[in-house]
Amino acid sequence: MAPDVSLVLRFVCYRLDADSAAIVTVATQFFSTLIPEGMMGALESASDAILAARSADGDTLAFAILVRRHAPYLRAFAIRLTGSSADADDAVQEALISAWGALPTLEDFSKVRAWLLSILSRKATDRIRQRKPSAELDEERAEDVELGPEQRAIATSRLDALSAVLERLPEGQKQCWVLKEVGGYSYEEIATELGMTPQTVRGKLARARATVVREMEEWR
């Protein structure tokens, strides 16, 4: 089997291109662990399960590849959930640091992505709760949303339209929707995360659902 030298070299050049001394230092530190040529290519195409297992054993290079693979999705999820890229970045960072510490306790390494998402959900909802301790009460007033015709007209695709509808939902409703439909959590789990009763979550989801269904009618 020919070792995949080209891939390794490409990766090294890429890292050295970035004009930050810190990056070069870290990169060098990494490559000192680099075993034979081809290793990088093999690791980059390795399954989540293998990368998570190695990370659990302390392999920072494997963890770096895992992070590179999933961070964009995690960040996108956190932005949709918190509505703030600053909060999202902080939550992702915190989640990954605590994931590194907890990886040895993960039972099924192949489920690492869902596991990361659940840690992230907790970190993100922590931020939401810290941000507005009493906002929930105020929010109940303006629970129903209707998009004006101009907002509907902007959307050029179903995804754009949904994006616009979600953006317009009251925050609590949007959070419930994202946790339910993207995160796949139960009412009870969402209630725990957001510090609400399952009944409140149910109510918010019902209202969010009614709005989304109505606003997305023409995109059916």
């Binding site: 890292r15 970035a18 930050s20 810190a22 990056i23 870290v26 990169a27 990494f30 920072t60 963890f63 770096a64 992070v67 590179r68 961070a71 964009p72 999705y73 960040r75 996108a76 999820f77 932005i79 949709r80 970045d89 960072q93 990954l96 640091i97 179903r158 995804l159 949904l162 994006s163 979600l166 929707w177 994202v178 439909e181 993207v182």
Partner: peptide
């Protein structure tokens, strides 16, 4: 569609920031 929306956000986003990754590691 909601899941696709997040996946699309992820695809559209610029790649992982190298400085951020270096700090994290």
């Amino acid at each position: 569609l909601s899941s696709e929306l997040v996946s699309k956000d992820a695809l559209d986003a610029p790649g992982v920031d190298e400085t951020w990754l270096a700090t994290l590691l």
